[in-house]
Amino acid sequence: MEQARTAPPSHNRLIGRLLLLVAGAFVFAFAMVPLYDVLCQVTGFNGKTGGQETIRDNFGFGGLKTATAPEPAVDLTRSVRVEFTGTVMPGLPWDMRPLTLSLDVHPGELQQVTYLVRNTSNRSITGQAVPSVTPGQAAQHFEKIECFCFEQQTLGPGEAREMPLAFIVKPAVDRSISHITLSYAFFGLEGQRQTLTSREVP
């Protein structure tokens, strides 16, 4: 009615703003990478554990905390069952298994277990284990004092090695948690990334 004869409004301003929105959303996706990592550390969202040194720093978003001194008090009034498991990722000709399948521990108590890892190929290979703890709420209170995942491991041809792990379930862990599962994934470090279709060297 009143604007019936006004010139059509300029499109460019609106287009500019919409493009800004597009760019913003794209940047948001990348901002999620560090944000998500911070979130995981604060909440234990994805089973990232406390008490670990940074594994590799060629890509900084792993950002794991360094070990702190163990807390002394042991809570004898309850115990938590810790289960151990592990997998070897495709392309790494190793096998691994925990020598202790599960363990009842009192929160605050120092415990040690070992994994047996064997290189099934006839060459020397370096691998790196990455841990994960479920449930997520327990992850922050699962502290590793000593772990084969703190550094890279090299196994000679056919070599088998017992790898130690010392940990404390901190007394601060919520009382509702009765079971904790610790899982390792072993990755091969050398060479190109293994794909599903690339052949394993025996």
Binding site: D37, C40, N46, N58, F59, L64
Partner: peptide, 8 residues
């Protein structure tokens, strides 16, 4: 995960 990333 091996490089500090996260599949989730």
């Amino acid at each position: 995960a091996a490089g500090g990333g996260d599949p989730i």
